[in-house]
Nucleic acid binder design. Sequence first.
DNA 1: CATGAATGAGTGTTCATTCAT
DNA 2: AATGAATGAACACTCATTCAT
Lengths: 219, 219, 219, 219
Amino acid sequence: MPSVKAKPAKTAEPRSRDADRSQLAILLAARDEFAQHGLGGARVDRIAERADVNKRLIYYYFTSKDELFLAVLEQAYADIREAENQLHLRDMPPAQAIQRLTQFTWEYYIAHPEFLTLLNSENLHQGRHLAMSGRVRDMNSPLIQTLAEILERGRSEGLFRGGIDPIQLYVSIAGMAYFYLSNNHTLSAIFGRDLMTPKARHERLSHMCDVILGYVLRN
Amino acid sequence: MPSVKAKPAKTAEPRSRDADRSQLAILLAARDEFAQHGLGGARVDRIAERADVNKRLIYYYFTSKDELFLAVLEQAYADIREAENQLHLRDMPPAQAIQRLTQFTWEYYIAHPEFLTLLNSENLHQGRHLAMSGRVRDMNSPLIQTLAEILERGRSEGLFRGGIDPIQLYVSIAGMAYFYLSNNHTLSAIFGRDLMTPKARHERLSHMCDVILGYVLRN
Amino acid sequence: MPSVKAKPAKTAEPRSRDADRSQLAILLAARDEFAQHGLGGARVDRIAERADVNKRLIYYYFTSKDELFLAVLEQAYADIREAENQLHLRDMPPAQAIQRLTQFTWEYYIAHPEFLTLLNSENLHQGRHLAMSGRVRDMNSPLIQTLAEILERGRSEGLFRGGIDPIQLYVSIAGMAYFYLSNNHTLSAIFGRDLMTPKARHERLSHMCDVILGYVLRN
Amino acid sequence: MPSVKAKPAKTAEPRSRDADRSQLAILLAARDEFAQHGLGGARVDRIAERADVNKRLIYYYFTSKDELFLAVLEQAYADIREAENQLHLRDMPPAQAIQRLTQFTWEYYIAHPEFLTLLNSENLHQGRHLAMSGRVRDMNSPLIQTLAEILERGRSEGLFRGGIDPIQLYVSIAGMAYFYLSNNHTLSAIFGRDLMTPKARHERLSHMCDVILGYVLRN
DNA sequence: CATGAATGAGTGTTCATTCAT
DNA sequence: AATGAATGAACACTCATTCAT
């Protein structure tokens, strides 16, 4: 069975002469650093340390901190899209599909907290990195198309109410999850209650499903 | 021998009005700067410029950048609480109160975009400023109490479903507004559609009310 | 007897709380550093060291390396103009005035080798600093005007030939001195002869006077 | 089976013509880069780009930036010497030879502005590259010898004044041209007059000839 | 109450150069 | 003969903060 990698599988590779590996290490380290400190608070030095590469190499491959941030952002979008594609919502009954999407969104955000802070950073900077991205169009989530189809199916089956904008619905699902998780610290402080206990998390998901289905379902 | 200082030597004043004026100017300037650039990206120099005061004065009154940030944060919470108190939701029929709250949240966030970014910054820093605040407890929104009463009233009148957690509901309302507005730039880029036109804003509020009332109302 | 300085003559001044002194120290240190290494080769760190001030202070007063260079350049021009003004060429007989100017130019360049390298740097950068200077116009050497008058006087007295452009003449005098001194190293290497011995210097000045007077004088 | 390589497989060639080509490309690119930015401001990366070769190749052939600069410098001297040799001043009447030399110097500097900046750079660095050159001696311009002969011929014919040092004369001719051209930017700024118009250039050459011949010729 | 002067520790970025093939 | 990957030392410039009055 042949290796998938294009690179010849040399025995005993020199530890650090691997362009792909270096690039990936930088990307992952940068993702974590940007997620933890935001774009402004992230330190290129720290990224180099995390990735265990020479700082200069970051510039060799990514030109600047901003371009590195963009690369991280694009990767983050590529990742969530990939995960969405694995859901196969089209193969489910409409109500189940909506519930599955809600659950997925919730769980993906929990598993990938960096996604939330990366988006926050990009929005703080008014989306100027994404605006310069050649790959933004590819990010146009096909999920919206899928969601539209599910809503239409639900409606024609008499289950769902009509006139639901899939984008509005998607933003609502995401928003309910996002706000709770992204603002967890301030909310916990103000309400004086830990929002991240397993129980609290379970209740949140449950609530979200109730709200979304309560809205979508006829009656 | 009279004082050389230009400032009028008022006889009995609670220790200079200039002090208050400078302090307020700094606070407002800081709010804008932090909102625009985040905590990490904000520059003390720029705040001094915006407030038209000597940079040293900022330290004189607020000790450090972090304490200034906290002061801004506390002010932001005080402001929204003040606004919430003006709503008099208790005086309305339950369904109307819920709708009014939804609308208020939406409109307040639009009128005070700085509130969103300030919260984002604080959460990026894991709520550590709020944690040091002596006034957090005061921020425990009485709105939750009010909301609980409204929900109970609606339930006892047979209008609302039972078992609704007011905190969950509040977070959902806020989240649907917050996410749309705070992530406006990335969402607009990805969906290729301007989410901030008057029409789009109107539709969003309408959708939010539908979702929330669809959930709250029995049937 | 009152102090000329505007600043009150405090006894026991704190060693380093003197804005003027710091600024001047920076300017002098920068002049030497730029002269020695050129604009590109000059190091801000080294300037700070030479001036014995904190590096940050350089930016505090001069904003950037380029603006500092401009300040140095402007000072250099101000200095030579000041020296030219002391010559009182107008009070001399024409031939003597020309000779005096030649000698002055020669000696000023020798005493101020930094002037030559500063000009070389500025010209390497195509005069872009001077182009941004608000004070360029003030640098329009009144010497040219004086020279024109001297030439006219000499001509009307029947001593000088007519039709001499004072700018051309000035550039020739300066050029003969400048090239010899500025390119001293390459010339010495190529001709295999030290051009900077007292004797060689004396001969050069003598030659220059011969050439210039040989040209200017009728016959 | 023929070689795939585009390069013709010459049988007996002194080890590849590509090598020479790359070396020359580097040399020319370096000359332009050094001329434009000076030694300190020149970038090895940019030279590689200009020459369209891998940066590493520059080190392969020239060892270091400084040695490359020296190579460029030596080439520049070789070039001007070659051009001087084409003048055949010896075959002309003395006065014409002097005039021809003046004109040649002027025109060569205009056609080769890089020569001026290269020399400036080398002198800024106190001639330390040339000092290390094994070929400096070859640069000892035979022109000086020629010039001496011309001056002697002119003197013995009763045309020229005696006692003229050919080196002094050469430096004066070169200096009058060099200063005008090399310092063109600062001079233009200060005199507020474009020194590089065709008319201005013509006048300069004319003036130079007047000065030099006015000096050299008896009377 | 207010401020101009000053600073140590960093900040993203650059540069000539070397490594390994 | 040629090259993509990698690096240490710098570099211009910045920042929150303190000094001294």
